[in-house]
Structures are given as structure tokens and as C-alpha cells.
Design a protein around this nucleic acid. Structure first.
Lengths: 120, 120
DNA sequence: GCAAGTAGTTACCTAAAGGTAAGTAATGAG
DNA sequence: CTCATTACTTACCTTTAGGTAACTACTTGC
């Protein structure tokens, strides 16, 4: 598994490697809408994520240059995250994906409303 | 881990659950461009994927209604995969993502060409 | 009658991802 | 003097995903 970044045949693989992963696109989507969120705020918006994993995701996104970490050494530390210019470039893609998601969600709700007549 | 599809708070999570995963978006992207591919052809375009995992991804995409499986019981069986109408709705999103990917790829290549003068 | 070829399936095993829980720093509140 | 707070980090342990390899079916070619 140490030979995966070599065959960067197409850029698609590269970008997927950066934004894929369990909660990663969702974090980007949150930051894409709220423009700046603190660690705890992100955690609160993603029920079920652990601090360990969230930290890991944020570090990786930061390393990829997609998000910016703003650490303020106040008494209880204040850490805010926001998209970088590069990260912001994903906004339209994420928005497009969200539109599809919303559409499918509505379609599926309609079908559910018909209580499985579609079994025919 | 059997309590993850319940909190379908926002559709984004739902769609991410369907198209996320190691090679999934890439498979969709391939089918989005080639309109129909056989099992072996997909495998050949994704170096490093095993038959087991590819089968798994294809089954899940089929279960989500994003791809269509066309099995022809010829002597050596011929199985083709293509996007369903719903799967095709992802095309513009994937294309948008690819555009960003290509752009970043070019930017990164430029920077590499400058051999780290950007340290300033 | 045995190998080849497609598209898997299955069993088994290992590596990595993720969860939980506890610890940390610094300070203000009680 | 101790607790609470924020944003982690670390250790430990379990679960899961994924890899590898072998096996299947069915017919053709040799």
C-alpha cells in the first residue's frame, strides 16, 4: 500500500485521494457553507464522529492545502477552520452534488409514500 | 456500525454513503465517459483493484440504482455495466470535479517546475 | 480429456481504520 | 483546591476492509 501515489495517471485519482474518506467531503461541505467553524462546531454537526478522527481529517485537509487552521492560544484554546482558496474551488462541485442529493432524496420519499406498489 | 443510515439528517450524507468508498467515484467516472464497460475493462482501467473489491463496488452501485448490470450467458460470460438514468445525473458533478482536479494538477506541476522558490 | 477464458465467489489472513477512554495545558469560577 | 472548558494527543483494543489464492461454470480448441 506504499505504492499508490505513483500511478497518478489521471488527476481524478489524485483529487479523490484528497477529498475522499468517511467524513471528508462532508466537512468540506460544512465549511463551504459556513465559511468558518470551530473544532467543536464541526464535531457537533457531525454526530458520531470522534475527536480523533475529526482531528485526523482536518490535519489531512490542511496538509492538502484545502483548509486553513487558525489557532488562537486563548485560555481555553480557540481553533477555527475555514476553506483556503483552493478548498473554495470545490464549492460548486459540492453544491452540484448536494442538488442531486436533494433531488434523489425527494424522489425516494415520494416512492416511499407509495408504500411499495412498485413491487409489480 | 448498524446505526448509521438512521440519522439521514441531510441528503448529502446519504449520497456520500452511496458514492463514497475507495474506488467508487472513479468507477462512476469511467462509466460516465465510456457509457458501457465490461467487468474486465473496468478492472484493467483501475490498476491495483482486486476482483473481489470491484465486484463489491459494482454490486453496491447496482443496489443503489446507479449502474445497470447486463449479464449475457455467452460461452465465456459477458457482463457489461453502464450508468442508469440516476447514475448519469452525476456526470456533471464528476466532470466539475475532474476540471478542478486537472487545474490543480497543472498548478502543482508548475510549482514543482519552480523547484521550491515558493518558500518565500 | 485438459487448458483457456470470463466473471465471478469463497475462505482465510493481515493491516489499517476507527472507537473509547484517559491525559494535557492554562486559567477562571466556586 | 478542585472543576470545568477547548482542542486535542496517546494508548489500547476491536472491527472492518481489503488482498491473495483457489475454485466454479460452460464451451471451444488442441
Amino acid at each position: 500500500m506504499a505504492a499508490k501515489e505513483d500511478h497518478t495517471q489521471c488527476p481524478m485519482e489524485s483529487i479523490l485521494g484528497q477529498i475522499m474518506g468517511p467524513w471528508t467531503p462532508y466537512i468540506l461541505w460544512l465549511l463551504s457553507n459556513e465559511n468558518s467553524l470551530r473544532f467543536g462546531e464541526i464535531a457537533a454537526r457531525i454526530p458520531g464522529i470522534s475527536a480523533k478522527v475529526l482531528t485526523d481529517r482536518l490535519r489531512k485537509l490542511e496538509a492538502s492545502g484545502l483548509i486553513h487552521r487558525d489557532y488562537k492560544p486563548t485560555v481555553p484554546p480557540t481553533v477555527s477552520y475555514s476553506l483556503t482558496a483552493r478548498g473554495a474551488e470545490l464549492h460548486s462541485v459540492l453544491q452540484g452534488l448536494n442538488e442531486v442529493a436533494v433531488r434523489w432524496d425527494e424522489e425516494d420519499k415520494e416512492k416511499e409514500g407509495k408504500t411499495e406498489i412498485a413491487a409489480e
